[in-house]
């Protein structure tokens, strides 16, 4: 099994008519994802690579029965696009777009929580989600992941996620689902949301968690793992040597006022029984050991 998305997930691409949307929408469709519709307020009735375009998400849902949406809209339009997707009836929203203002993220996170509690948002500023062999929504190169299981991956970083998928594939280890939650200050889906889903998924036997400096999401995840997870977890945290007060590429990757350091996160995870690697390769090797012992 997989978490959040599988071979039956029908996906709408908001921004399918744009360069990013058409490119990645095309790759996702090639991978086997059910790319059923695009949206554009002025291009309803047209098609992109054979995929029909509707005026808005509600109409696309009505016509296709889609339950998920992927957003490739430029940052200024993301707040509107997220709410349009929720109001249109979609239950799983993946926002790939980078550069969304933090206040917008805090706003639509709380708006969804209050008014659309059954809607799950992933992102913004994330690579998306892939259940290898079944469904790939976003910008991950599908062929670097081996399908099956037993490992679930959740990560704040794009390239480190690819690195992890690739290293596991080299070791012939499959992945149930790999979720990129993104590097922004207010991610729609948290580590804990994913850990909870992996714990409940019978095919996922172990979880790899990739974090980075900034915020306290890793510490909260560690607390959750300690109290609620029966499955083994391995982890890697990027940014051990990052200088304080500097945003390291991601808007959320910043050590401020002595908080959010990699050291504190690694300690919290180790304290929760998580095996923490000191570089991505080591984290992969630790996971291979865990898998060998399952």
């Amino acid at each position: 099994m997989s978490i959040f998305v599988d071979e039956n997930t029908k996906v709408i691409y908001q921004g399918l008519t744009g360069s990013q949307g058409s490119y990645y929408g095309g790759l996702n469709a090639e991978y086997g994802t059910q790319v059923v519709a695009g949206t554009h307020p002025k291009k309803a009735g047209t098609a992109v690579n054979g995929v029909p375009v509707y005026a808005n998400v509600a109409e696309a849902v009505e016509a296709t029965g889609a339950t998920a949406s992927c957003i490739f809209i430029p940052a200024p339009g993301v707040r509107g696009a997220v709410m349009e997707a929720a109001e249109g009836g979609v239950k799983f929203i993946v926002a790939i777009t980078e550069g969304v203002p933090a206040h917008d993220e805090a706003y639509f996170y709380n708006d969804l929580k209050a008014n659309f509690p059954d809607v799950q948002l992933l992102g913004p500023n994330c690579p998306g989600i892939i259940s290898p062999g079944k469904c790939n929504i976003g910008i991950t190169a599908g062929h670097i992941a081996k399908e099956g299981g037993p490992v679930g991956i959740v990560s704040r970083s794009g390239t480190l996620t690819y690195q992890a998928l690739y290293e596991l594939k080299q070791k012939d280890i499959g992945v149930t689902t790999c979720v990129g939650i993104g590097g922004d200050p207010v991610p729609g889906t948290s580590f804990i949301d994913c850990l909870k889903a992996f714990e409940a998924d019978p095919e996922t036997k172990a979880v790899m968690m990739i974090g980075e400096i900034g915020g306290s999401a890793e510490e909260e995840a560690a607390e959750y793992i300690k109290n609620n997870m029966s499955k083994p977890v391995s982890s890697y945290i990027a940014g051990v040597t990052a200088p304080p007060g500097k945003k390291m590429g991601h808007a959320g990757a910043i050590v401020s006022g002595g908080k959010g350091t990699a050291q504190a996160k690694m300690e919290a995870l180790e304290d929760a029984g998580v095996r923490v690697g000191h570089n991505p390769t080591e984290a992969g090797e630790l996971m291979a050991e865990i898998v060998a012992g399952l």
């Binding site: 970083s157 390239t159 480190l160 990027a238 940014g239 040597t241 590429g249 990757a253 990699a262």
Partner: peptide, 10 residues
């Protein structure tokens, strides 16, 4: 990638 760049520095 930001994560890989941080990791490289580390």
């Amino acid at each position: 990638g930001a994560g890989l760049a941080m990791s490289t520095v580390d």
